[in-house]
Computed example of a mutant assay.
Amino acid sequence: MSKFTEEKLEKAIIALLEQRGFPNTPGGQLQRAPTEVLIKDDLRRFLAGRYAEDKITPAEIEAVITELERLPTTGFNQSSQSIH
């Protein structure tokens, strides 16, 4: 049995998202600094739309982004648990 790696997990998630109609854009094609992990404008739009009925404020959206940016960059599993 082969080891399940982060790379295999990433490929499996990308395939699943593509099956559901979400396009995959390789990171090198995105307009952002190579060190930027979050696509902040997309996240802002998503949060504003998803939580519009709850009347989410721009300040709350920025707080979410700030919280995500503060997560450690090491320890994939720990960061994933914190996000969820």
Score class of each variant (00 low, 15 high):
1 M>S: 13
2 S>I: 10
2 S>C: 13
2 S>D: 11
4 F>C: 15
4 F>S: 14
4 F>Q: 15
5 T>W: 03
5 T>P: 07
5 T>N: 03
5 T>R: 04
6 E>M: 11
6 E>D: 08
6 E>I: 10
7 E>F: 13
7 E>Y: 12
8 K>I: 07
8 K>E: 13
8 K>W: 03
9 L>G: 05
9 L>Q: 14
9 L>T: 10
10 E>P: 00
13 I>N: 03
13 I>T: 03
15 A>K: 14
15 A>T: 09
16 L>Q: 11
16 L>Y: 11
16 L>R: 14
17 L>P: 04
17 L>D: 04
18 E>N: 11
20 R>K: 10
20 R>H: 11
21 G>Y: 03
21 G>M: 07
22 F>W: 11
22 F>H: 11
22 F>Y: 14
22 F>M: 13
23 P>Y: 08
24 N>P: 03
24 N>Q: 06
25 T>V: 15
27 G>D: 10
28 G>C: 09
28 G>A: 12
29 Q>N: 13
29 Q>L: 15
30 L>T: 07
30 L>F: 04
30 L>V: 09
30 L>Y: 03
32 R>T: 10
32 R>H: 06
33 A>E: 08
34 P>E: 01
36 E>T: 08
37 V>E: 10
38 L>T: 00
38 L>I: 11
40 K>Y: 01
41 D>E: 15
43 L>Q: 01
44 R>M: 06
45 R>S: 13
45 R>F: 07
45 R>A: 06
45 R>Y: 09
46 F>L: 12
46 F>A: 05
46 F>I: 09
47 L>Q: 02
48 A>H: 03
49 G>W: 00
49 G>L: 05
49 G>P: 02
50 R>M: 03
50 R>A: 09
51 Y>L: 12
54 D>I: 11
54 D>G: 06
54 D>M: 14
54 D>R: 15
55 K>Q: 13
55 K>D: 02
55 K>W: 07
55 K>T: 04
58 P>H: 06
59 A>P: 00
59 A>M: 14
59 A>Y: 01
59 A>W: 01
61 I>W: 05
61 I>R: 01
61 I>F: 00
63 A>T: 05
63 A>N: 04
64 V>C: 07
65 I>Q: 00
65 I>L: 06
66 T>A: 08
66 T>Q: 09
67 E>V: 09
67 E>K: 13
67 E>N: 12
68 L>C: 02
68 L>N: 01
68 L>V: 00
69 E>Q: 07
69 E>F: 07
70 R>I: 05
71 L>T: 10
71 L>N: 05
72 P>N: 06
73 T>C: 12
73 T>M: 10
74 T>D: 07
74 T>H: 09
74 T>S: 11
75 G>T: 03
75 G>V: 02
75 G>F: 00
77 N>P: 04
80 S>T: 10
81 Q>T: 08
82 S>A: 12
82 S>K: 14
82 S>N: 09
83 I>L: 08
83 I>V: 14
84 H>N: 15
84 H>I: 14
84 H>E: 11
